[in-house]
């Protein structure tokens, strides 16, 4: 077995890339099917996905081990299309970044709504491809049997959508509170507390399904690769502490908070605070998931 070659930089890239795809899908979906109720969410989805994918690309490029000797060699990654899945991914991510950038610009400049909707349809396909690609890349790596499960891309996709949802929600609050001049819509929206808490509450309700789904998929995934070194390290061994933190803090706490909000009628500010904390934990969990899977596969 070869020594590990992918570490925390690639884990961060997988996390940010998957989350970017998820955030875009959430934003586009709420604009296309939200009947105008979720414009702030749609805007936040575009902005945060752009920031997330750009940050992800920085980590990806920093990990390239020939960057210091041949900085422009990075462009060679486009060459082996469509044979190399990594080359396919390079094209997908590039296209996705361009679409996320255009969508963001059009929202900021209050551009043509039809054009935005057209970009959103295209961007949803590319965002989904970006998220799924991060998993397919690993599942094709034949030297690492722990990654060789067709469930891995779906685990990363579900996690991408859940973390993407978290990022858009957190993004709304950050833009409204810290960068109000970026987009006045956020500031005005955040002033209406009842509207905010109502939206957060329904987002939490919607997030119950993907949270359940992620728990289910992660268990099934481990089942399909049970017996590999990585599976033991994850469940009992060196990485188990991280793995259980991901499962309990990253998923179960959020699930309990969401269900509590769903069943009990909670005070407005508590809803907002609760969902922000819950989603922040989801983000931490999403990062830990990428990290443990990446490391476990190379043991």
């Amino acid at each position: 077995m070869s020594e590990p070659v992918w570490g925390i930089l690639i884990a961060t890239y997988l996390f940010l890339g998957g989350m970017a795809g998820g955030a875009y899908i959430i934003g586009a979906w709420s604009d296309l099917f939200g009947k105008g109720k979720y414009e702030v969410l749609a805007r936040s989805g575009a902005y945060t996905s752009l920031i997330s994918i750009l940050a992800g690309l920085v980590f990806l490029i920093l990990d390239l081990k020939r960057l210091t000797v041949a900085p422009f060699s990075v462009l060679n990654a486009y060459i082996h299309f469509p044979v190399s899945i990594m080359s396919v991914g390079t094209w997908i991510i590039s296209a996705f970044t361009v679409v996320a950038l255009l969508t963001t610009l059009l929202w900021l400049l209050n551009g043509n709504r039809i054009l935005i909707k057209f970009l959103e349809i295209l961007g949803m396909v590319l965002g989904f491809s970006t998220t799924a690609y991060t998993g397919i890349l690993l599942s094709y790596a034949r030297g690492r049997p722990f990654w060789g499960s067709p469930l891995l891309p779906w685990l990363f996709t579900v996690s991408g959508i859940l973390t993407g949802l978290g990022l858009t929600v957190i993004g709304i609050s950050i833009i409204a509170k810290i960068m109000p001049r970026l987009d006045r819509n956020f500031f005005e929206f955040f002033e209406q507390r009842s509207k905010v808490s109502q939206m957060f509450k329904s987002i939490e309700e919607y997030s119950i399904v993907p949270t359940f789904l992620e728990i289910l998929v992660v268990i099934l995934f481990i089942g399909t690769v049970w017996g590999t070194n990585g599976s033991f390290a994850l469940v009992f061994g060196d990485l188990s502490a991280f793995f259980w933190i991901y499962l309990v803090i990253g998923l179960l706490v959020h699930l309990v908070l969401s269900l509590y909000n769903y069943i009990k009628s909670v005070e407005e500010n508590t809803i907002i605070f609760g969902s922000l904390v819950g989603f922040a934990l989801v983000l931490i969990g999403g990062f830990i998931l990428r990290y443990v899977i990446l490391i476990a596969g190379q043991l």
């Binding site: 070869s2 070659v5 992918w6 990990d63 390239l64 081990k65 020939r66 960057l67 041949a70 060699s73 990075v74 060679n76 990654a77 060459i79 190399s84 990594m86 890349l137 690993l138 094709y140 790596a141 034949r142 030297g143 690492r144 596969g297 190379q298």
Partner: peptide
């Protein structure tokens, strides 16, 4: 041509 991505190491 190599960019040093390390994918060959994981793929072999």
């Amino acid at each position: 041509l190599c960019i040093g991505c390390g994918y060959c190491i994981n793929a072999c």
